[in-house]
């Protein structure tokens, strides 16, 4: 089926490496767009900062803007101490942003539309929080689950809720990004499919196709917003979780 809205998420092998220590590590279209996102983001930031101009050029001010955007986000959420995680948050934000934006090109693969990718990134964040939290605060890090000022008899219940909410963080963080990208691209594809199907029905069909066409244009604009917004949300939540690792007491 030519306009199967799911086809765009299929992974195809480009360089098959089907049995490396029993694992299929083929270089796929997904890998290609990971490489492309990283290459584009790296090139943008590298050439943007190459001139080190006191008065920035356009490219340089865009690179500076991204830097300061993430830096202020992290500083607001986690304080000056949080700045040690700046490279981590910055690379996460830029990676997700570029992957999302690459996904907006027709025929391009959206890396972040696969749950395993977003889940891996989310686990990276939570793993960093847990490891750093225990390293920095030892067992005091567990104080994260015991909010202050809670009456004694409520503590077990609150701790249970806190633990569940903590465990659900990687899931909500990854599913939010994954589902937004997936749903957006499916919607686009479905409406675009309507345009093609109706257009094939002759003059009346072409006239009727105008409405879904307008929808496609509008949803494309919306999807650009979502692509940015989800990268932003991912980064903001990362900052907030990192703040827990830095300051575990509520």
């Amino acid at each position: 089926m030519a306009n199967d809205p799911i086809k765009q998420f299929e992974i195809t092998r480009i360089v098959p490496l089907e049995n490396v220590a029993g694992l299929d590590l083929s270089f796929t279209n997904s890998s290609l767009f990971m490489v492309a996102s990283v290459a584009a983001a790296s090139a943008f930031l590298y050439f943007g900062s190459a001139n080190r101009g006191l008065v920035p050029s356009r490219l340089q001010s865009m690179a500076e803007l991204s830097y300061e955007f993430v830096a202020s986000m992290l500083r607001d959420a986690a304080g000056t101490q949080g700045m040690r995680f700046f490279p981590f948050v910055f690379s996460l934000f830029m990676f997700v942003l570029f992957a999302n934006m690459f996904g907006m090109f027709p025929y391009f693969f959206t890396v972040t539309s696969h749950i395993i990718v977003t889940f891996a990134l989310a686990m990276l964040v939570i793993g960093t929080v847990v490891v750093y939290g225990f390293m920095k605060h030892g067992l005091k890090f567990l104080g994260l689950f015991v909010p202050e000022g809670v009456p004694g008899y409520l503590v077990p219940l609150v701790v249970l809720i806190e633990i569940i909410s903590f465990l659900s963080r990687p899931i909500s963080l990854s599913v939010r990004l994954f589902a937004n990208m997936l749903a957006g691209h499916i919607t686009l594809k479905v409406f675009a499919g309507f345009v093609v199907s109706l257009g094939a029905l002759g003059a009346a069909g072409v006239a009727g196709a105008i409405l879904p066409l307008i929808m496609v244009v509008a949803i494309t604009a919306l999807e650009f917003l979502v692509a940015f917004l989800q990268a932003y949300v991912f980064a903001v939540l990362t900052c907030m979780y990192l703040n827990d690792a830095l300051h575990p007491s509520h």
């Binding site: 796929t28 990971m34 690379s91 990718v117």
Partner: peptide
Amino acid sequence: TFASQLFWLAITFGFFYWFIAKVIS
């Protein structure tokens, strides 16, 4: 496809993190 995606994500994101931390930032 998970193994392949995780593998290439680790490589690309790992490089990107290193590049940001050592050069860009």
